[in-house]
């Protein structure tokens, strides 16, 4: 029997990102939720809107040397360097496990070259159980690819167009905040056929051990995430949502339901939870429940009534 107060089960939290239908707007951000199974002891993966897996490259990548992370005021720096098992091992070893869940699986795609982005996208498109692709043109911690593509609107457009031509899956382009005007990148992705954009990836930063006069990260710089970046992410999502017609997925420092609601209200169709997973494995569950409680309290019966409802 359906609990008549369960908005999630009734589909009142449902959202659509192009052709991708999600039972609720809460996704896990790439690189913060492993391949899903790491958090299965703590979270009912069926309750998530979507799981976005760690960025996948054609070949396995070892990533950067340690130390790779450092806590900073209200945030953390990371320079993992896209350590991943490679797309083939993902499909063979990780995807079968994820297929059992009634949750959208989104593969984050990384390449050093456009050809690599295309090849990884093609392989994932043929795999059974991948529901959408998120194109990573924003990783700040790799020497080639990643943000090198995401800071040039022509390159963003080129990668997007080519990937769109190679897949029939919905394509989300994940944008970097390390640019002068992120809306320019979002418009470039939209014009090239992207089904959605997600923003923001981490903000490049650094931290120094003054006693030893060495950087805390072996990679010297890293990507800043966590509550420290939330106001910046929110401002960028608000700006971008006002300028494009495709869905915007908000990400950056979301720790709680009120944080998630801020993003939805400024125009994000869905949100991603990242760093919060590290601190409380059940953060996504609390956020879903909190959004549901808010909707009941404010008599909101559909996500459309919430998304972009900011009053200025």
């Amino acid at each position: 029997m359906m609990n008549k107060n369960d908005y999630n089960k009734q589909g009142k939290l449902a959202v659509e990102i192009g052709a991708l239908k999600l039972k609720n707007p809460v996704m896990t951000a790439s690189g913060t939720f492993g391949y899903g199974e790491e958090y299965a002891p703590y979270v009912d993966l069926n309750r998530l809107g979507a799981i976005i897996v760690k960025g996948l490259s054609l070949k396995p990548r070892h990533g950067n040397p340690s130390p790779r992370i450092m806590e900073t005021p209200a945030g953390m720096l990371n320079a993992i360097g896209l350590q991943n098992v490679g797309v083939k091992s993902f499909i063979r070893d990780k995807l079968p496990y994820l297929r059992q869940f009634d949750t959208a699986i989104i593969a984050n795609v990384y390449g050093e070259t456009i050809e690599e982005y295309l090849r990884v996208s093609e392989i994932l498109t043929k795999a059974d159980g991948v529901h959408a692709l998120e194109i990573n043109v924003s990783c700040p911690n790799v020497k080639k690819g990643g943000v090198a593509f995401g800071t040039d609107p022509d390159m963003v457009a080129e990668v997007t167009k080519r990937v769109k031509g190679a897949t029939d899956l919905p394509v989300i382009v994940k944008l970097s905040p390390n640019v002068t005007d992120i809306a320019v990148m979002a418009k470039a992705a939209e014009a090239a056929g992207a089904d959605a954009v997600s923003l923001i990836n981490t903000i490049t930063g650094m931290s120094v051990d003054v006693e030893k006069r060495i950087p805390h990260l072996k990679n010297v710089t890293g990507g800043l995430s966590g509550p420290a970046i939330k106001p910046i992410a929110l401002r960028m999502v608000w700006q971008v949502a006002a300028q494009i017609h495709i869905p915007v997925i908000g990400v950056g420092g979301i720790m709680s339901a009120p944080d998630a609601l801020e993003f939805l209200i400024v125009g994000a169709r869905a949100i991603q939870v990242g760093t919060a997973n590290f601190i409380d494995p059940r953060a996504t569950m609390n956020i879903i429940e909190g959004i549901e409680a808010y909707m009941k309290r404010h008599h909101v019966v559909a996500m459309d009534d919430l998304v972009g409802s900011l009053r200025i």
Binding site: G31, T32, F33, G34, E38, Y39, Y42, K54, H62, G63, S66, P67, R68, I69, M70, M76, N78, I80, Q83, T275, N277, F278, P281
Partner: peptide, 16 residues
């Protein structure tokens, strides 16, 4: 090693 999540997700505590 420094770590963020403790469960193998963040890949912060890599060792070769």
């Amino acid at each position: 090693e420094r770590m963020a999540c403790g469960v193998g997700a963040c890949l912060g505590c890599a060792v070769t």
